[in-house]
Simulated assay, not measured.
Amino acid sequence: MTGHVLVFLLCIHLFKAQQLITNCKNERSDLWKPNTKDGLPIRKFINSFTFTTAQPQNNREELKYKLDIITGRVAVVRGANGISWTQAGSLVRDGWLYDDPNNGYTLYVYPDFRTGILGNFNLIGELIQGQPVKIIQYRYNIRSLSSLERALFFSRCSLNILQIKISQPKETSPKFRYEKMTSFFAGSQPTVMDPMERMNVYIGNTNMGEGVFAKKDLFPFQLICYYSGLFISHEDAKTMFSNMSLNELKTNSRYLVNYNSTHLLDVPSGNLAQFRSSLGHKVNHSFRPNSRFVHARSPRFGNVTAIESLTFIKRGSEVLISYGYQNISNPFLDWYK
């Protein structure tokens, strides 16, 4: 839905004093190139937004942009060809909405820059319905230059925007939509895996039971998986657990994590046959973690807890996190070996 991706319009404003440029200025070709396994070319474009006070050259059309008034970061970029990239939330790990009016589609781009959800979105960027796809190619829109222009300016990006190509959604692919998590509802597709997680991780056996392992090399500060489920208020949790014995408490709170000052997150079941729409709850504890808890916005789950890498995690290695236990004598750590 063209034009439906300018989310959070009340929180962004046009900044006209400077001109926005991207790494498109360094490109010499507008040919389509294959996306890489780590999505690095697209990631570099997103990370390249910089400002200059120089006046635009006659052969360059100015890139339109808007800033997030809270963070000061670029929230929307739009090329002269109408293609736009809109930040899907206030954090980099929240992903982007890519709108291509020339080909008539809108895509949620996961922060791995390889995976997306092609679909329809409402005016505030929530997913109405969509299917998973892969981002397979990219190119920079570079206008053909005369020999004199090329000699004077090298390669100038008249459109200054990155364009992407995607795979066609499979007929058998699931159809996703945004669903608000509550204390009794964890989504209507509890056994359908998240498409980014399917690319990033797999479940394997450890001496502590099931664990999460890297399906590919994961780089520092990369979003690995989500921790979605049931949102339970602190007050409700006190009522639920007040009359339980220690053994009952350990059993019923094994996957319970703090979300914020008012709510906790839990999963409806630790059995993967019943719940695997996100796999964050299967990441095991370690006193030497290689990942951490963060907040992130998911197109399916909304604002949830997520797991982000702290260090380089080699393919096949277990993803480990600290649950905040101070020492191994904690009674809730009897499963830890």
Rank of each mutant, 00 (worst) to 15 (best):
S317M: 07
T2L: 06
P169F: 03
C157P: 12
T52A: 04
F231H: 13
W96N: 03
L279D: 00
S298H: 08
T106A: 10
N243E: 13
S277T: 03
V77I: 08
R139V: 00
Y178K: 12
N207V: 15
L320K: 11
G270E: 06
P220F: 03
N35Q: 10
G187D: 00
N35R: 01
V192F: 01
K238I: 09
N207Q: 14
C11V: 14
N23E: 10
S286Y: 13
V304G: 00
H285G: 07
N59F: 03
L31K: 11
M196N: 04
L159E: 14
Y110V: 02
G125C: 02
I124W: 04
N59R: 14
L223E: 05
I124V: 12
N122P: 05
W32A: 01
L6I: 08
H13K: 14
T22K: 03
T311I: 13
N330V: 04
P190E: 01
T262S: 15
N303T: 14
H263K: 15
G3R: 02
K37P: 09
T311Q: 15
N260K: 10
S286F: 11
F241L: 10
N205H: 14
G104I: 08
F8M: 15
N103H: 11
P220M: 06
S298L: 01
L6W: 07
K66L: 13
I128G: 05
T191R: 03
N260M: 10
S269M: 01
E197T: 06
P190Y: 00
V212C: 06
G89R: 05
R60A: 12
P34A: 05
R288H: 12
E179P: 05
S261W: 09
L91R: 13
Y138Q: 00
M240Y: 12
R78F: 04
G82N: 08
V133H: 07
K37D: 15
K180P: 04
L264S: 04
D38G: 02
S173T: 00
A214Y: 02
S253K: 05
G130I: 00
L230Y: 08
P195Q: 02
K250G: 06
L97W: 05
S269A: 05
R43P: 02
G95K: 01
D112E: 05
K37S: 10
G39Y: 09
N58A: 09
S173V: 01
T106I: 07
N23W: 09
F176G: 10
W85P: 01
R150A: 14
N141Q: 13
Q129M: 07
F184H: 15
N26C: 10
Q87N: 14
G324A: 07
I224V: 09
F8N: 14
L107G: 05
K66A: 13
D99R: 06
W96A: 05
L6C: 14
F45K: 02
D68C: 13
Y140H: 02
S322W: 10
S309T: 09
T182D: 10
A54W: 14
H281L: 01
D334E: 14
G72N: 08
P56G: 02
G324E: 03
T191D: 00
L6R: 13
N290V: 06
Q274P: 00
T36P: 07
P101N: 06
F184Y: 13
N141D: 12
I128Q: 12
I142D: 05
L91H: 15
T50W: 02
N122W: 01
E61D: 13
L256I: 12
H295V: 10
S278W: 02
S298V: 00
E27P: 10
F312L: 08
